[in-house]
């Protein structure tokens, strides 16, 4: 892994059109600005992991009472 040291307001270019800018640094947090083409998907990694877990947990239905489910939705 490439590791670079940056100061506030300095940036890194990835390829021609992705720019990562360090916009603020505090004790245990950095604020990062990302300039990338609109088609580029940019997400917090935790979000992707949370959705993966949620998908997995959503398939763990041990019993499905579809009639009861329908009743709840109709309310």
């Amino acid at each position: 892994m490439l590791v670079l040291t940056r100061k506030k307001n300095e940036s890194i270019m990835i390829g021609d059109d992705i720019e990562i800018i360090i916009t603020d640094i505090s004790e245990d947090k950095v604020k990062v600005g990302i300039r990338a083409p609109k088609t580029m998907k940019v997400f917090r990694k935790e979000l992707i992991q949370a959705v993966e877990l949620e998908n997995q947990s959503s398939t763990q239905i041990d019993k499905l009472d579809i009639k009861k489910l329908e009743k709840i939705i109709k309310k």
Binding site: E54, S58, Q60, I61, L64, D65, L69, I72
Partner: peptide
């Protein structure tokens, strides 16, 4: 996607 765990409620 629905996540049903325990009671449907």
């Amino acid at each position: 996607i629905l996540n049903i765990h325990g009671e449907i409620e």
